[in-house]
Simulated scan of single mutants.
Amino acid sequence: MKVSREQAAENRERIIEVAGRLFRERGFDGIGVADLMKAAGLTHGGFYGHFKSKEDLIAQASARAHAGTCEAWSQTADRLGGEAFAVLASQYLSVAHRDNPGMGCAFAALGSEAGRQGEAVRSVFSQGLEGFVGVLSRILPGRSAAARRRKALAAMAQMVGALAIARAVDDEALSKEILAAAREDLGIEPAVN
């Protein structure tokens, strides 16, 4: 049965959205193409009509995840100005974010895996990082653009690392302690979880 161009475009968008969520939940190798297509409500056979390879889908799904989160951060920065960093970091370092990797930051969920991927995926993660650092550089204090960028890189690294470690441990109290320590070190109030 022939699919219209509009339906094909909708199917492609659905695959990218579902893959972005499932990759963040299960990892790049934690789900195969057949299961991704099934989760998107499509058959496995149609995959290669949309993507060259699983790596192509990984790159596109990761780019979409970064863009969505970065856009939300940018809107928060525009809306809250000087208060934005505290809000963003508090939300990032929350139990809710820890417990919902499929809807959260791709860096915390997939950063260590991205380093083992091909150039296309690593390039997407580099571009995504530049977007996040750009937003943080706008809202963090500093005497110069270079100083704000250093602070933004350090804050991003600390938030991603803290969230990844908080997800990795099996002790709930320790996990919450990691998140709280990172929030305190970044100079923000404890998150409301």
Rank of each mutant, 00 (worst) to 15 (best):
V3Q: 06
L186D: 08
R143F: 08
G128A: 01
A40Y: 01
E71R: 11
A180H: 10
A40N: 08
G32S: 05
Q60S: 10
R24V: 07
R12M: 04
A145F: 04
V33C: 04
A191R: 03
V3Y: 01
M1A: 11
L163D: 00
G82F: 06
A145G: 11
A182Y: 00
G49K: 12
A59R: 12
A173Q: 13
A8I: 11
K176G: 11
E130D: 14
L140W: 01
K38H: 11
G128C: 00
A67T: 10
L36W: 02
V135H: 02
R116N: 11
G20E: 10
R116H: 10
E177W: 14
A162V: 05
G115C: 08
D185K: 14
T43P: 08
G32R: 06
E6N: 15
A182P: 01
E172N: 10
H66Y: 10
L42E: 06
L42N: 09
Q127A: 14
V121F: 04
A40P: 05
R143C: 10
F28H: 09
A63Y: 09
D171A: 04
E177V: 15
A61R: 06
Y48V: 13
A59M: 06
S144V: 09
G68W: 04
A181W: 05
I31S: 05
R116L: 07
A63T: 14
G30W: 01
Q158C: 12
Q117E: 10
G161E: 08
A157G: 13
Q117V: 08
I188S: 02
K38A: 12
A147K: 08
E6Q: 15
P190M: 08
C105Q: 06
E10D: 13
E55D: 12
E172W: 00
S175N: 07
H97S: 13
G134P: 03
L129F: 12
L88A: 07
Q7V: 14
E119M: 10
F47W: 00
R149Y: 01
E17C: 09
N193S: 06
A120L: 12
A63F: 01
R116Q: 12
T69D: 07
R79E: 15
A180Q: 12
A147R: 06
L36H: 00
V33H: 02
D99L: 02
I16D: 03
D78G: 05
D78K: 11
R98W: 00
I188A: 00
E119P: 09
L140D: 05
A181L: 11
S74D: 14
R64A: 13
R167P: 02
A89S: 09
A108Y: 01
F132E: 09
T69F: 03
A181D: 14
A164M: 01
A108V: 07
I15Q: 02
S126R: 15
G46C: 01
S53G: 05
K54H: 07
V95C: 08
F132C: 10
L22S: 13
G82A: 13
G32Y: 01
R98C: 04
A65T: 12
R5M: 13
